Amino acid sequence: MPNLAYELPVSEQDYLMGELNSPIKHEYIDGVVYAMSGASAAHNRLAGNIYLAFANHLKGNPCQPYTSDMKVKVGSKYFYPDVLVDCTDLDDNSYFSEQPSIIVEVLSKSTRQLDKTTKLDSYIQIPTLQEYVLIEQEHAEIAVLRRATGWRAEYYFLGDTITLNSIDLTISVEDIYQRVKNSDMLQWLERKAQEEEQLQADSASH
C-alpha cells in the first residue's frame, strides 16, 4: 500500500486540484490520499516496453495507450496504472480515464498486495475493461486476467507469447522483459547464446 499522505478525508475535487500542482503523484481511495513511491529502472523498462509495443501497434487506431501519468477513475477511487489503453478519444485536457480497455501494472514489493486486491476488485467493476495484466519485475512471470474467462489468471513465462484480445496484439514475454536483468532473463539469454554457438559450430562442421 502506498504511504498515507493525508489523514483526514479529502474531497475528490480537492484531490484532483491538488494533483495538478503536486511534485509527486497520489492515489485516492474513498476520501483517503496515498503518496506513491518512486519506481526502479527495471520497473520503468517493463512499463516502457509495454507502452512502446502498444503505441506502435495502435498507431492510427482510435485506441490510445497512456503511461503512468494518466489516472483511472473507478467510483470514488483514482489510481495511476503503469499503462492503460482507452478507446474513447479522451479530450486533451483529460487527467483520468473512466473507460479503459486494458490496464497493466508492474508489480513490486510495495505495490503487489494493492495491485492484486484493492485495484483488482476495483478494475473489474469497469464495464469496458477486458484485460488486466500483472507483470513481475524480480522474475519473468506475467499474469493476464480476462473478462471473457471470468477474471481467472493465466500465467506466461519466457518462451511464451501473449495475445491481448482487447487490442488484438500478440507479444512475446521475452520482448516485454527486453533489457531487464533479473535472474530469469540472464539465464534465458545465456542459454540462447549457448544454443546459437552450438548451431554455428554444427553449421561449420558440415
Rank of each mutant, 00 (worst) to 15 (best):
A148P: 00
D175W: 00
S122Q: 11
G150V: 04
T149F: 04
E12V: 08
Y132R: 10
M17F: 11
F96G: 02
G31L: 05
Y80T: 03
F54Q: 07
S40T: 13
A39S: 14
L120C: 05
V85M: 06
N165V: 04
T149E: 14
Q187L: 13
C63E: 11
K59G: 04
P62V: 07
A140I: 01
G38L: 09
M36G: 01
D168F: 01
N182G: 01
I167C: 09
L46D: 00
V32P: 00
L4K: 14
S108C: 08
R191E: 15
S166E: 08
P81W: 07
V10T: 12
N21T: 13
Q113P: 00
D69S: 11
H43M: 08
D82H: 09
L129N: 05
V85S: 05
E7V: 07
E27I: 02
P100D: 03
E98Q: 15
V33S: 03
E136F: 05
N44I: 06
F96M: 07
E105Y: 04
M17L: 15
L8S: 13
N93T: 13
K192A: 06
Y15T: 01
D30K: 14
Y156F: 15
A55G: 00
S94G: 03
D82M: 03
E7F: 09
Y15I: 02
I50M: 15
P100F: 02
D91Y: 05
G48I: 01
V33Y: 06
L8D: 14
L58Y: 10
V104T: 05
H139W: 13
S22T: 11
T149H: 13
S205P: 00
E131I: 03
Q194Y: 01
Y78S: 01
P65D: 10
E12H: 10
G150W: 10
K192Y: 00
L16V: 03
A41C: 02
L20E: 14
S76I: 03
Y34Q: 10
Y66A: 02
E190W: 00
P23L: 09
I103A: 03
P65E: 11
D14I: 03
S205L: 13
L52S: 12
Y132T: 07
S203C: 07
G75T: 09
S172C: 04
E174V: 05
N44R: 15
T161S: 13
M1K: 12
H139Q: 14
D168M: 08
I24L: 09
G18I: 02
L20C: 07
E195S: 08
S108R: 12
Y123D: 02
V106H: 07
D30H: 14
L16M: 10
S40C: 06
M185D: 07
I167M: 10
A5Q: 12
V85F: 01
M185S: 06
L158M: 09
I103P: 04
Y177T: 05
Q125V: 06
S68P: 11
F79A: 00
D168P: 03
Q130I: 01
Y80Q: 06
E141S: 10
P62W: 10
T118Y: 07
I176Q: 07
Y95G: 03
V10F: 06
S172A: 05
Y28A: 01
A201S: 11
S108Q: 12
R152D: 13
E7A: 08
T128P: 06
S172R: 11
E141V: 03
V85P: 02
G18Q: 07
E174D: 14
